[in-house]
Design a protein around this nucleic acid. Structure first.
Lengths: 149, 149
DNA sequence: TGAATTCCTACTATTTTACCCGGATTTCAA
DNA sequence: TTGAAATCCGGGTAAAATAGTAGGAATTCA
């Protein structure tokens, strides 16, 4: 039940874009360096996010990527589901197109899977990129203050 | 973020044992047939559950498996975690032995992962095998009644 | 015009998954 | 007492998923 690197790296990259939201395009190189990720691999992930209209790109020199919407309008759920698909723990409880097993209605494990699915969705849909930025700034308040002195 | 078949089949098998709890050992063959699973594969899974003291076995003819505790004392979480390990969505938030990444303290995605982990744990630890049996019997009440007529 | 950058397709090594196979051991029942 | 029904056990393996790498075309700024 691990999230794959797609989801994880995707969140990290989107967080980075949220951190610099409104300051023009950020290059993949910058994101990859800041987060310690493979630039080439990240390229594939951000391409998916771009096609899902979660990020916009600017080509050419001094180009890069930026969020397609304000950080408080994009949830962690938007990002993870775009990169990983549904977070349903089993195919029979995938939201839109569930794979019907033979037991279908009377399956007791299906109820369990639904409850797991719903609790995950509830959490990831309630956290926005802005929330992550706020958390981050709060956590790093002290060290920022130290620098200031 | 799918559960693997280990977790799923494991729950199915344990549900089956819960359904017949107190009625003597149930053979792997019966479980596999009832749930439509590979007997050989299930054998491996139930061996893990046995070593974790969640099921007891009786060898020889007319032997089989039975729950090591009443169905209301075994949770879905016990079963899944025994077969799949921690359900933490990332290594850095595994309960007992987290893998510390370089960001460690000030990582904003870690908070997200912790919240996902906690919500999954809360759900799976709150559902017992007895709950599953009760749900199942409630769902099948109508058809049982029809048979009765 | 050249450097920086995104865009795109294909390839690949490694790991994980989901099993199968074959045989040893144990025990009940006829 | 013997055979069938079971659990127990270790190894093997094909297919899929994962986590990238490689290389180059297209675009744009300075």
């Amino acid at each position: 039940m691990k999230l794959s690197t797609k989801g994880r790296y995707g969140i990290q990259a989107m967080f980075e874009l949220a951190l610099y939201y409104g300051e023009g395009p950020i290059s993949l190189k910058t994101i990859a360096e800041n987060e310690g990720l493979s630039e080439h691999y990240l390229e594939q992930l951000i391409a998916i996010l771009r096609k899902a209209d979660l990020v916009k790109s600017v080509r050419g020199a001094q180009g890069g990527y930026m969020l397609a919407a304000p950080p408080d309008k994009i949830t962690v759920g938007d990002v993870i589901r775009t990169l990983e698909g549904s977070l349903a723990p089993a195919d029979c409880v995938v939201e839109d197109t569930p794979f019907e097993c033979s037991r279908a209605g009377g399956c007791p494990t299906k109820l369990v899977m639904e409850r797991i699915r719903d609790s995950i969705n509830k959490v990831i849909d309630s956290i926005t990129l802005q929330d992550m930025v706020d958390d981050y700034r709060r956590l790093n308040q002290k060290s920022a203050f130290m620098y200031y002195i």
